Lab assay of single mutants.
Amino acid sequence: DHDVVPEDKFQETLHLKEKEGCPQAFHALLSWLLTQDSTAILDFWRVLFKDYNLERYGRLQPILDSFPKDVDLSQPRKGRKPPAVPKALVPPPRLPTKRKASEEARAAAPAALTPRGTASPGSQLKAKPPKKPESSAEQQRLPLGNGIQTMSASVQRAVAMSSGDVPGARGAVEGILIQQVFESGGSKKCIQVGGEFYTPSKFEDSGSGKNKARSSSGPKPLVRAKGAQGAAPGGGEARLGQQGSVPAPLALPSDPQLHQKNEDECAVCRDGGELICCDGCPRAFHLACLSPPLREIPSGTWRCSSCLQATVQEVQPRAEEPRPQEPPVETPLPPGLRSAGEEVRGPPGEPLAGMDTTLVYKHLPAPPSAAPLPGLDSSALHPLLCVGPEGQQNLAPGARCGVCGDGTDVLRCTHCAAAFHWRCHFPAGTSRPGTGLRCRSCSGDVTPAPVEGVLAPSPARLAPGPAKDDTASHEPALHRDDLESLLSEHTFDGILQWAIQSMARPAAPFPS
């Protein structure tokens, strides 16, 4: 592969990997390779389809078979030569091979799209000592099968071997295949498990690692696999990028399955594409389908809103127990993405979901129960707010008499603000006073009005108090039968009158 990737590009890729991570280095090298001529790309395919690569990765054979028959990708048995050289000459001794072996032994695996480039050397060096003999053996194999790289107009793939297949390693990572398949204008990513390549439709969760975000852009890794992070704060999961590491605690105790298979379609829109997988259930989501939507993949363990709600429900009964003089119970939860139609709101002032922060849900004790107040519409209280300059209440639009249902020339009671006709409430011909108009209920007259088809109010509507207090003497005590009587009149003013009279009014101040 030294004929494909020059030394300066190799060093530039290593520097970019240390600065921005393996995914960015892979993407940059792939983009550079696509700008080369067809001879360089053909050399790339020839390096990929060597015999030892085909033996190690069985899924490469179907890719090789898909090439046109007129494309010669065979390799000479006596060494490598550029395709432009007409004579089959043995190339001179390859010093770059020693360079590659020494550099890969030092860096474990470079971040390139060629056999030198995919593992994360920093994480491997940190986690190597417990498994040094086995990992050293794996390093000797890295130059042979560490990076199976493929690129063409139909298929483009980048393979990364790992030393996680050490025997006896619980939940060992089998390997990473960062794979971009450009077929019919689409893009897919796969993962390699035990020599087999699994596409998103049959993606397997190998051991402790999972394909957290099938994305090839942005600074985030394709698999949430930063070796420096180790395990999740809650004892979460091992990262795919942690090559040759000792077994780590796999999943939280509440995880239903340690080796679950995540779905390959969004649980909201039932469509495929780039998904984020939940650590607590097999569901996966688009970032845009979450509520609120996320802009980037959160670091650490992530769970959907259903799993978060289940966790909150487990903690909430203990938080609601009476604990005198104790601060509110704080339950730190990872930043969760909410699927459509589901929402768990945190306290005000918290950062938005999706940031690399930890939301704190506070379970406050329930407030003391209070008697429910009568629910009145805002339009129902409008007549009470229509007060004239002299303190006389004006008529609201649409006000109707509670007896006849007519809204023409209605009066407004100064005591309960109900609309009424003087002739309907006082049919006996009582003279109307000039000021202080009161309806039949507030004036103490319980004589029913002779209106055909309208039920008369119940005599129990009024329960006047002592006459010594004029204001308190007109406080009506309405009961269920009074409400039914008012409802039978089918008037809004009657219902409003009952609601206003049912509310307690402050006692009249004593004259000074």
Rank of each mutant, 00 (worst) to 15 (best):
A380S: 09
L275H: 14
L252G: 04
F426Q: 12
P511S: 08
V454N: 03
D264C: 09
G280K: 06
D445P: 07
G436E: 06
P293S: 08
P351H: 11
S339I: 06
E484G: 06
P389Q: 08
P324E: 11
L373F: 07
H479R: 04
R345Q: 07
D469A: 09
S378I: 14
P448C: 06
H382P: 11
G402M: 04
P374N: 14
C439Y: 02
P253M: 14
G407W: 10
S431N: 05
H259K: 10
R318L: 10
C442Q: 05
P450V: 10
T414Q: 07
P351W: 15
D264R: 03
L385E: 04
A319V: 08
H259D: 08
P372T: 12
V360P: 03
R423S: 06
G272P: 09
L373I: 12
T301W: 14
I500W: 02
D356W: 02
D409K: 03
D493E: 09
A340I: 08
P509L: 11
V329Q: 12
D470I: 07
R318I: 05
A428S: 13
L337T: 10
D279S: 07
P351N: 02
S473V: 07
P433E: 03
A467F: 09
P334K: 10
T301C: 06
L411W: 04
P324C: 13
G407V: 14
A366T: 08
K362Q: 14
R295E: 11
W498M: 04
P374Y: 15
W498V: 01
T331A: 10
L294C: 09
P327V: 09
F426K: 07
R480E: 00
F510R: 03
G388L: 03
L364V: 06
L290A: 11
I495E: 02
D469E: 09
L290C: 06
S378C: 15
V387F: 10
N262W: 08
P459H: 05
D264G: 08
T358I: 14
R295A: 08
S441G: 07
L483H: 06
P347I: 12
C439G: 02
N394I: 10
V329P: 10
P351S: 04
G391D: 10
R318W: 08
P322D: 12
L437K: 10
G398H: 14
C304N: 15
P332F: 14
Q316N: 05
A508F: 07
C281S: 11
P367A: 15
L437F: 09
Q316S: 13
L290M: 15
D406H: 14
C289Q: 13
V315F: 10
D493C: 00
A507L: 09
E330F: 14
H415T: 15
R318C: 13
C439S: 01
L294S: 12
A284C: 13
L376Y: 09
D406F: 00
A371Q: 07
I276M: 08
H286E: 14
